[in-house]
């Protein structure tokens, strides 16, 4: 799941300054799950912005709110068409993908990001999310006991722990587990420590020339007909 964090109210207010009528648009998928932009966050932000307006004494903005199931597909955005008639900008609480999908679908309307898209991860407990995947495009989890050193080691190194690990934690953050200690323990448990002894050569960053594209459909010439 994509995890994001809502931008500060101050930053959001700064962004919307030029626009009078703002539609706050939530996303019913990842942003709902990570508590950054679901229907509740949309109304909370709506209330917070209105409070800020009433406090500032010279508020000019008016807000509306709406939440689509997913912002990252054009089809879901079609229902926006009749919501934006009198809107000057969309404040999207979708991830960076959602914001761009809106920009592509609604070429004449400014769209503003209301969240900082942070990472792909999962909930550790209620209200706490941890990164798990860096989308490197070259997965080596089979070699590392299902624990990703690229994501979870602050240096993303492949050949074992650095010397900075202490008490099983990372030198960069004492609350963060050292990925390589986790990998060692898990491989030991699985009886696969030989995988850790193996030399891993330099990573192939060529797998991610940006922007990336994945195609799961076969290329078939239209001319070939349906027979």
């Amino acid at each position: 799941m994509i995890v994001a964090e809502q931008k500060s109210l101050a930053e959001i207010r700064q962004m919307i300054t030029p626009y009078q009528r703002v539609l706050i648009l939530g996303c019913g998928t990842c942003m709902t799950v990570c508590n950054a932009g679901g229907e509740r966050e949309v109304s909370f932000l709506h209330n917070a912005l209105r409070l800020a307006e009433s406090r500032s004494g010279n508020g000019i903005h008016t807000f509306s709110e709406y939440t689509v199931k997913r912002q990252c597909d054009y089809e879901f955005l079609d229902s926006l068409v009749d919501k934006i008639g009198d809107v000057d900008a969309i404040l999207s609480l979708g991830c960076g993908i959602g914001v761009q999908a809106i920009a592509e679908r609604l070429p004449d309307l400014p769209v503003l990001p209301g969240v900082n898209t942070s990472f792909m991860g999962m909930a550790e407990e209620w209200g706490v999310w941890d990164e798990r995947c860096a989308a490197c495009g070259d997965c080596i989890l089979a070699e590392t006991g299902g624990i990703c050193p690229i994501t979870r080691c602050t240096k993303g190194i492949l050949n074992g722990p650095c010397a900075g690990t202490k008490n099983g934690k990372c030198e960069a953050n004492k609350d963060m587990d050292c990925a390589w200690i986790l990998i060692y323990k898990r491989l030991e448990r699985l009886g696969q420590l030989d995988k850790m002894r193996r030399y891993y050569p330099l990573r192939n960053f060529r797998t991610i020339p940006r922007p990336r594209r994945v195609a799961s459909k076969a290329s078939i010439d239209v001319g070939e007909g349906n027979g």
């Binding site: 709406y66 689509v68 199931k69 089809e75 079609d78 229902s79």
Partner: peptide, 15 residues
Amino acid sequence: MHSPVSDAHNYRANR
């Protein structure tokens, strides 16, 4: 290119 607005795909958030 995109399908026309279709009720079936509408997600009514503010019911």
